[in-house]
Design a protein around this nucleic acid. Sequence first.
DNA 1: GATTTGACAGATT
DNA 2: CAATCTGCCAAAT
Length: 111
Amino acid sequence: MAEDYNFYDNVYDVVRQIPKGRVTSYGAIASYLGAKRSSRVVGYAMQVAGSANPPVPAHRVVNRSGLLTGKFHFGGNTMQDLLESEGVEVKEDQVQNFKALFWDPAIELEL
DNA sequence: GATTTGACAGATT
DNA sequence: CAATCTGCCAAAT
């Protein structure tokens, strides 16, 4: 049981560790997993996350621009509503003060 | 088993 | 400085 670790499952694990009121980017997660070029795969995992159990806080995962890419998958403004509910300022599907709210696993989980 | 797509990122023009 | 194109890796069909 060495291959039980999938890139996919690993992504969920990191996303679940995102503290409330914080956001991260696909590249940050991918980079933390050692596949910074696989940022797209991370996003794909999020798609299935909507079907995953327990569902990962994908609403805390945005692209490197802080843009709520994928809100479409949530089914409306659910993503933005959740972020605002956690104290994250979202304007036009874009995380405000993104840089300050940016949660980098490669740094936060570093210790 | 091979091909296509993909919630991106980074480099280049 | 802003917009555009390519690149990369893995999962899904």
